[in-house]
Design a protein around this nucleic acid. Structure first.
Length: 796
DNA sequence: GCCTTGAAGTTACCG
DNA sequence: ACCGGTAACTTCAAGGCG
């Protein structure tokens, strides 16, 4: 029989010494199924030094075979490697576990130049070879139904090396429709410091599913969380979710649950494979067999507008749960709210709000995740956990496979830097009526136009007719015009897909589900296309090519410089530019001519991205603030949008910018700043507005200088809190003696009385305000109120 | 020994 | 664990001065 199914996830098992691929899916009737696919074996390639001696090498490889898990086939194949035809041997082994050992042995054999594609995990190998993309729909031929045995699914099918065909007509179907989602969150009680799974119990597990109106809580009674965990296992099994979502559960909840379950001797048997427990896996995600365990924090990390990415902040920013309508507790308050029975209800409410926020976040994030999964080829539970580079790489591996190109190995390389983009010096001050012109996908288009890639790169010394190559400016690297390279193909395909999606979107109402689906898809495609340049310059990339990256930026510099020159020739004033954007005084006719020039003479697409009624620059690059024609304030680069300044300083700067741009009133801006400073002196400022957040980027012992956030991190560590790279530390500066760092304190340990007002006036509010006001002739002294100013004293 | 200066260290931003 | 270019802060040591 044939089965139509949506591919949700993939895993494999070894059974009777033979591997079985497990495809997890669901049918059109919304039944969960497993397809057990046999006859697929792991393999890798050996590149042969001398094709005339291929038989000799084949014999040597075969001689390595061990009877317990043998090499089952060695086959000569003609492949391509970095654009050149090569002779290789495809070595197929019986089971995945032995690939590594065989790889090492084969690598050392005489006559073998290199071993390739031995580091591709078996499940992914299958997806790659069969050209399967998770979340898409397929038909598999000639399967037999078997009894469900060890799987918690409706049907199990056995397949043996049969065809799997993609069903294109399903491509606009919502991949998430009717999937069951469960959101959960755990609360842990610890007497002091960070919770320790060896002793601190899970006191609450909250959860909500697609079928529930309200969240449920499993609450610890007595002193043991045994029942809590047990109950949670039942809940998951009963509801049988396809997708489990949480917020940072890969970094915390699962690891904690796994430890606690181990202590109680509970089997966290919550997957769709009998007896399989959650398992830490690749990219730091946790794998739950047959279910997609998606950590929404991975999505949140890409929202750069939110600086401190707690669940509350992200939910508030996205509007799924406003801070006003929920209970807010901070991590350090949780023990207090559990211990104190009077307060416990607040903690319960807090957990409910967290669970609901999490579920709602999944509604916002998963549609994009599903599309990225469909486009990149990574399962949904891995795709956001994987870094940008890996997501793109999986897509590239698929392109390579189609072209018969072998994937290079990952290797350790020395960092070699190269020149990047140009940034123009801005014209300081306020400019009226400014158009921002943006090149459309500049780097991807350079790649396509000049056929840039490791396989088209002409190596130094190679003799080739200059007619047949594109030569990069400044750096002189040459790229063959023909044939189309690997990157050109991959990138133009992505650009093309995106164009088509955008075209299709025009046919639908922006509020329609299909429009939204397509929009998520085009975003996913864009992300991959935009990552290609950075990927080429990434030393850990399989297709690392410094010359390529360097050539792309060189072409980019030439293009933007030429465009700027032409703008000036046309009589447009170039106020600023960065990489692929030009800020020019807006003149409709001249701008049109410039756009034409860029299209016809340079061969690139440039468009008006936005028009500012007024835009302000300082001498600094990468910083400006503007008022758009639709009356929105844009702030770029300034303190007001940086996460490492106090909210008070940011807010003050924002207001100053707003007053200047909207009203043009310097006096009003000065007045505003003075009031803020007065409030600070009067201590009428919410302490939370004084907190400065900074990320700890390495182990505390590795810091050479004790900056404030490092000093505070050490205090927290002494208090028993775990400090790991990546965490954000919130601190305030208090009065006292010693360096700034020595006066930094965790924000929740001080009151407004302790605050060093002078610091906030002189090092936060005034610098942030002066950054702008300086350009309007304002002096620092004008911002200070009744208090005697230091500069006045200095004067005498 | 004190004050100034600039390099080094650090973080977060832009495109 | 995608790139280089950039601003701006704090610390810390060197250098100048007396």
């Amino acid at each position: 029989m044939d089965v139509v199914f949506q591919l949700l996830d993939i895993s494999y098992e070894v059974e009777g010494g033979s591997p079985v691929i497990i495809l997890w899916g669901r049918t059109e009737e919304n039944n969960r199924i497993v397809i057990r696919y046999r006859g697929f074996h792991p393999y890798f390639y050996a590149v042969i030094e001398d094709p005339s001696r291929i038989e000799e090498v084949t014999r040597r490889i075969k001689a390595l075979s061990e009877s317990s898990s043998p090499i089952i086939n060695v086959e000569p194949v003609k492949m391509r490697y970095i654009g050149r035809p090569i002779d290789a041997l495809k070595i197929t082994t019986l089971i995945p576990a032995r690939v590594r050992a065989y790889r090492e042995k084969v690598k050392k054999l005489e006559g073998v130049l290199d071993v390739l594609e031995a580091d591709i995990r078996f499940s992914m190998r299958f997806l790659l070879d069969k050209n399967l993309y998770p979340m898409r729909w397929y038909m598999i031929k000639d399967v037999k139904e078997a009894n469900s045995g060890s799987y918690r699914v409706k049907h199990v099918y056995e397949a043996s090396n049969t065809e799997i065909i993609e069903l294109e007509e399903y491509s606009n179907k919502d991949p998430l429709e009717d999937l069951r989602i469960l959101a959960f969150d755990i609360e842990v009680y610890s007497e002091k410091g960070s919770p320790d799974p060896r002793k601190d119990p899970i006191v609450i597990i909250g959860y909500i599913t697609s079928d529930m109106e309200e969240p449920e809580l499993i609450i610890m009674k007595g002193k043991s969380d045994h029942v809590v965990i047990q109950k949670f296992v039942e809940v998951v099994r009963d509801y049988d979710p396809d997708i489990i979502v949480g917020y940072n559960q890969n970094g915390f909840d699962w690891l904690y649950l796994i430890e606690r379950a181990k202590i109680h001797g509970i089997k966290l048997d919550i997957g769709r494979r009998l007896g399989a427990v959650p398992q830490p896996s690749v990219y730091g995600h946790v794998s739950v067999q047959g279910r997609l365990n998606v950590d929404l924090y991975d999505f949140a990390k890409e929202i750069h507008e939110v600086k401190v990415k707690t669940l509350e902040e992200v939910a508030d920013y996205l509007g799924v749960m406003k801070k006003e309508e929920r209970v807010i507790l901070e991590w350090w308050q949780i023990p207090e709210y559990w211990k104190d029975h009077e307060k416990r209800d607040v903690l319960l409410r807090y957990t409910r709000d967290d669970v609901v926020s999490t579920y709602r976040l999944s509604e916002v994030f998963l549609p994009f995740g599903a599309q990225l999964s469909q486009i990149s080829g990574l399962p949904l539970d891995q795709v956001m956990a994987a870094s940008v580079g890996f997501r793109l790489e999986w897509r590239l591996l698929r392109e390579a496979k189609k072209m018969g190109e072998l994937a290079p190995n990952r290797e350790e390389r020395r960092e070699e830097s190269y020149t990047g983009a140009v940034v123009f010096k801005p014209e300081p001050g306020v400019h009226e009526n400014v158009a921002v012109l943006d090149f459309a996908s500049m780097y991807p288009n350079i790649m396509v136009k000049y056929n840039v890639g490791p396989d088209t790169l002409v190596r130094p010394g190679e003799d080739i007719d200059p007619e047949n190559v594109y030569t990069a400016p400044f750096v002189g690297h040459r790229f063959r015009k023909k044939p189309d390279g690997f990157f050109k193909r991959a990138v133009s395909k992505l650009l093309d897909i995106r164009r088509r999606i955008k075209q299709e979107m025009k046919r639908y109402d922006p509020d329609s589900p299909l429009y939204r689906l397509l929009n998520e898809r085009q975003k996913a495609v864009k992300i991959l296309a935009n990552a290609t340049y950075g990927y080429m310059g990434w030393t850990a990339a399989r297709w690392y090519c410094r010359e390529c990256a360097e050539s792309i930026t060189a072409w980019g510099r030439t293009i933007i410089l030429k465009a700027a020159e032409q703008a000036r020739k046309l009589g447009l004033k170039v106020i600023y530019g960065d990489t692929d954007s030009l800020f020019v005084t807006y003149d409709q006719e001249k701008t049109r001519k410039l756009i034409e020039y860029v299209e016809n003479e340079l061969g690139f697409e440039i468009k008006i991205d936005k028009i500012y009624k007024r835009v302000f620059f300082t001498e600094a690059k990468k910083r400006y603030a503007g008022l758009t024609v639709d009356n929105r304030i844009d702030i770029v680069g300034f303190e007001a949008i940086r996460g490492d300044w106090s909210e008070l300083a940011k807010e003050t700067q924002f207001k100053v910018i707003e007053i200047i741009l909207r009203k043009g009133s310097v006096d009003e801006a000065i007045d505003y700043v003075r009031k803020v400073i007065q409030q600070l002196y009067d201590k009428k400022i919410d302490l939370r507005k004084l907190v400065i957040w900074k990320t700890i980027t390495k182990r505390l012992s590795e810091y050479v200088s004790d900056q404030p956030h490092v000093y505070v991190a050490r205090i927290l560590e002494k208090m028993g809190y775990k400090i790991v790279p990546g965490i954000k530390v919130g601190y305030v500066i208090v009065r006292g003696s010693g360096s700034l760092s020595r006066r930094a304190r965790p924000y929740f340990m001080v009151s407004i009385e302790d605050i060093d007002t002078e610091y906030y006036v002189d090092k936060q509010v005034i610098p942030a305000a002066m950054r702008i006001l300086k350009y309007f002739g304002v002096r620092e002294t004008q911002l200070k109120t009744g208090k005697k100013t230091r500069s006045l004293l200095d004067f005498f």
